[in-house]
Design a protein around this nucleic acid. Structure first.
Length: 388
DNA sequence: TCTGGGGTCCTAGGACCC
DNA sequence: TCTGGGGTCCTAGGACCC
């Protein structure tokens, strides 16, 4: 049976949700994230804002310079998650298997569904109508014989696109997209490729395996070989190889005061432990991340014999990591804490989860108490209170 | 330009064991 | 008195994506 995959990708998702919730924003340059006076980047922006050269991941200051009359609004992740859940539910009405790839994107395995659902382009059109009617938003859908082609196809006619990569035209399709735009080829890989004089997929197809491996290493060579031929390099495994839970915060001003870092770690310890327990996972590995005032970033982690069970335990471990990693010669721009290699089977100790709501209350109280305390400290307040 | 926050996957090297 | 090979676990860093 021939495989058929859809990739459904929402158009300017965060910005579109904001425009839908607030009709005043419709037709105007809207920028989500990148609030003036705060460190940050643009999370998303409307197509009207893109005309000014604004794009996601751009520093806030640059966005303000390019688009001084733009409407800047904060990120409302909870709301986007709500809409996302609704959209995923719509997808599941049409596809036996929906793999969510990010908050605004999913792969639908439509293999063998044509008898029941109809031909792919018609089903895709129906999904688009459904999403529009129920959420007011537009989605672009790409169709291909594998997930990778579907993913590229979803981008091909954005916004409000619908494109199918025809059978037998896979190579032609790949060659119609600039190599540097292919999914998985980022800044670093592109710079390597360019330096080697490789700027098209057809050049990659003509290179020998040994040459490619010598230049990029085995993993990257395999990836490039596959995508240059329109094959799936293995994006989006249905079962991730490892799981992690982390929170981090960038201070409005770099911090040199140990007690501020300590208080932030206490807060982060509660956040990550609660989120871990909420998912029903467990973890023995704790990682601390620091970004210094010179933007250099480093991490340090430790693995203990047993899974972490209390925020206090996490907090104490995080202090050990901080003391090992921070030599106080630079102020701290960002501090983060996370669990690595989390085990989805959990701890096997149900007592941990029985009182999870009670735990949540305690955490909330603790955080509230912390926040009240932090109100005295102007430096840290913004960083702590911006989180729900 | 002055660079968020949350993730996954890969790699290279070291420790340790048989 | 100059030495193996393989497997597994762990760490730190880096690439990439949304």
């Amino acid at each position: 049976m021939e495989s058929v995959f859809f990739c459904a990708d929402m158009d300017a998702f965060f910005a579109s949700v904001e425009q839908h919730d607030n009709p005043d924003y419709v037709g105007k340059p809207l920028i989500v994230g990148g609030i003036e006076g705060h460190r940050g980047v643009v999370s998303a922006c409307s197509y009207e804002a893109r005309k000014y050269g604004v794009h996601s991941a751009m520093p806030a200051s640059a966005a303000h310079r390019l688009c001084p009359n733009g409407i800047f609004v904060p990120v409302r992740m909870k709301r986007y998650k709500e809409v996302s859940d609704h959209i995923m539910e719509i997808f599941s009405r049409f596809a036996p298997e929906v793999i969510q790839n990010s908050i605004d994107e999913a792969f639908l395995d439509m293999t063998g569904t044509d008898r029941l659902m109809g031909i792919p382009t018609e089903v895709a059109a129906k999904i688009k109508v459904c999403v529009k009617e129920e959420t007011g938003l537009t989605v672009s859908i790409g169709i291909g014989e594998n997930r990778y082609l579907a993913k590229l196809a979803s981008d091909y006619r954005k916004p409000d696109g619908l494109y199918q990569v025809e059978k037998g035209k896979e190579i032609e399709f790949i060659d119609s997209i600039p190599l540097k735009k292919l999914w998985g080829i980022g800044k670093s890989t592109w710079s390597h490729l360019e330096k080697a004089g490789i700027t098209t997929a057809s050049q990659i197809r003509n290179l020998s395996d040994t040459l490619l491996e010598g230049m990029f290493g085995k993993g990257a060579a395999e990836f490039l070989k596959a995508v240059a031929r329109g094959q799936d390099p293995g994006i989006c495994a249905s079962e991730p190889k490892s799981r992690s839970v982390s929170n981090e915060t960038t201070f409005d001003q770099d911090v040199g005061d140990y007690s501020v870092l300590k208080d932030t770690l206490l807060w982060l310890s509660h956040q990550i432990l609660f989120r871990l327990l909420e998912k029903g996972w467990s973890s023995k590995t704790l990682a601390l991340k620091l970004r210094l005032d010179n933007f250099s970033t480093s991490t340090i982690q430790m693995t203990q014999e047993n899974a972490f069970t209390s925020a206090e335990e996490v907090f104490q471990a995080s202090l050990i990591l901080l003391n090992k990693k921070w030599d106080r010669r630079h102020n701290v721009r960002l501090i983060g804490l996370g669990f690595q290699n989390a085990d989805p089977a959990g701890t096997g100790q149900p007592s941990l989860f029985e009182d999870i709501h009670e735990k949540q209350n305690k955490v909330e109280k603790a955080v509230l108490k912390l926040n009240n305390r932090f109100k005295k400290s102007q430096v840290i307040k913004a960083a702590l209170l911006k989180k729900p």
